[in-house]
Write a protein that binds this DNA or RNA. Structure first.
Lengths: 146, 146
DNA sequence: CACAAATAGTTCTTATGCGAATTATTCCTA
DNA sequence: TAGGAATAATTCGCATAAGAACTATTTGTG
């Protein structure tokens, strides 16, 4: 395989793992899993989203999301409601308890939030911009938008 | 949460998913899973590696790797051997069949290999270097090496 | 309008993926 | 050197993660 490409690949894998580990730390602290926390956050950012759209946003299959939502509903953190416009569809919403859980997870104790802040402080804005732009190029090439 | 940090996080997640999807394509073509293919590749690059070291290299727990190796052994692609120096340890090696499978996966048909090559061709070497260096900084911050 | 095609979710099966407990072996030190 | 601490791997339980098959609706086309 190609050397530079391989290095980029490994480098991305490593960062992703490190990020996931920090998310897991916050999630575990409040008694849920990292994926559940990411789902809560996404629902917080976008209310009344459909399961399909949530799955797409998270880059996950809807079978996976369906199962995760099952567990969040059982835990009383999320509500499932049949959409009135389309009775096939399901819309998802945080419960009050879910909202509280989310806020608790990303409070001042959150190492993830601290580290993300540190990244913003220690890396120059121009470099961050450069990084995101190269990432975009890479993503486009990987997805085959030529 | 912090805006730029969040963007970087999402951007990494997206690239990781895109990469995984391409690895999966090659893996599926030869009848194995993406993780199994990554393991075969790692064993190809480093013969007679211990399970522990393999897990560390892949950033996975050894319970996960142990299970994956189970399936690769069942499929006749990998050999497990008790280490002579340390009888607690297990060393792993590709079988001939495993080596053939790996070569078949990453042959000229491989979209992943093509795309990685394209990344090398279309992104300037200086930019790739810059990218890897920023990645390193981010990884260090995330892992808390302050 | 009828009815096939498309769409939204769920369920099933298999494979990760992790932490905790367990087993086997080796290391270390009183 | 005996026996506990440390280490390497496996096993177990649970939660992703994806694709395929399935159900329930809605859409599109003659």
């Amino acid at each position: 395989m190609e050397k530079a490409g391989r290095e980029i690949m490994y480098s991305v894998f490593r960062i992703q793992k490190a990020l996931y580990r920090l998310v897991r730390e916050d999630a575990t602290r409040v008694g849920i899993t990292e994926v559940q926390l990411i789902v809560l956050y996404t629902l917080f950012k976008k209310e009344n989203i459909r399961l399909n759209d949530l799955a797409e946003k998270l880059n996950m299959s809807n079978s996976t999301v369906s199962g995760t939502i099952d567990r969040l509903v059982s835990a009383g953190l999320v509500m499932r409601e049949t959409s009135r416009e389309d009775r096939r569809a399901v819309t998802l919403r945080l419960t009050e308890k879910g909202r509280e859980k989310l806020i608790e997870a990303f409070n001042h104790e959150s190492v993830l939030v601290q580290r993300l802040r540190k990244i913003e402080n220690e890396i120059e804005a121009a470099d961050i911009e450069k990084l995101l732009s190269i990432h975009q190029t890479i993503k486009d090439i990987l997805l085959g938008e030529e």
